[in-house]
Computed example of a mutant assay.
Amino acid sequence: MRGAGCTVNDLWDRNLDPHVARTRLRPIARGAISIQQAIPFLGAQLFAGLAVLLQFPTACFFYATPSLLLVTLYPLAKRVTNYPQFVLGLTFSWGAFVGFPALGIDLLTNTPALIAAACLYGSCIAWTLIYDMIYAYQDIKDDAKAGIKSIALAQQANAKAFLAAVSAVQVSLLVGAGASLGVGPIYYFLTCGGAAATLEHTIREVNLESVKDCAAWFRRGAWITGGAISFGLFMEYMVQYLDLFGDQGKHSKAVES
């Protein structure tokens, strides 16, 4: 589905991409692949995604299907809003909802799980705003010339303050997700604390005036922040699974039931 989103994006942007240095050599933009070739390829990607989705419980199909609308609409956002990255976040973060029915948890009847899913979804949206704003700074000069709307252009005057504020929102929502499920200190220290520390490091070190540096920190930031969050979640899972803190896992197990 990530690939399908890229294909949809390249189809919509085939007349914009040639005006941006970073995207001018994309296959459709440079004419290496025609629209007639790209659409069947998109169909194959979507069917491959469907094949994976059907391996999960049936409820996941109904939770996941609405995301197709967002996949289709995201590329249009840059034509009507300075914050297309927000729409990208809505799209990329949808798995925060799908993970719960995959575990047999009905979000519509389980309030703690619904709160956790909503907080996780919001946190992932905030994270998308952060890393994709850094990514967008690669194209800021070309976007201005081509008339492409961008969060980088909208927040150019106070970029790092904006990134710091959104980072605070991301970490706060991670805390909210954990609190709704009654997780233990491992989660708060490793996942929330790790996210806060790596985001601060990224924002402090990235040079938004350098295309090369923005590209490097886009990749590096995804790995270090994503790694901290994932490692914290894994360690919290192991603590719960092994019941290392005695009664710690009771609330989470109650949520699952």
Rank of each mutant, 00 (worst) to 15 (best):
I28D: 00
P40I: 09
P40L: 06
P40N: 02
L54G: 02
A38T: 08
A48C: 10
F61L: 15
R30L: 07
A59Y: 03
A32R: 08
A51E: 08
A44V: 13
A59T: 12
A29I: 08
T58M: 08
L53Q: 08
P27V: 10
A51L: 13
A29N: 11
G43A: 10
Q36R: 07
S34A: 11
R30K: 14
I39G: 03
A44D: 08
Q37Y: 06
T58Q: 13
A38V: 10
I28Q: 01
A48Y: 04
A51Y: 13
Q36A: 13
G31F: 00
F56Y: 12
T58Y: 12
L54I: 14
L54C: 13
I33H: 01
G43F: 03
A29E: 13
L50M: 11
F56P: 00
P57N: 07
G49R: 00
F47K: 03
F41Y: 07
I33A: 08
Q36N: 02
A29S: 10
F56C: 05
I28C: 05
A38C: 10
T58V: 14
F47I: 15
A32M: 04
I33E: 08
P27A: 12
Q55T: 14
Q55A: 14
Q36S: 12
V52I: 15
G43W: 01
I33L: 14
V52W: 12
A38W: 05
I35G: 00
L50H: 02
A32Q: 09
F47R: 07
A32E: 14
F61S: 11
A38N: 07
P40S: 09
S34K: 10
A32V: 03
L46M: 11
G31K: 09
A48K: 02
F47G: 00
Q55G: 13
A48I: 14
P40G: 04
A29G: 12
L42G: 07
T58R: 14
L42M: 13
G43K: 02
Q55M: 11
G31E: 07
F56N: 05
Q36P: 00
L50C: 04
L53K: 09
I28T: 02
P27M: 11
A44R: 07
P40Y: 05
F56K: 01
I33G: 06
P57H: 06
I33M: 15
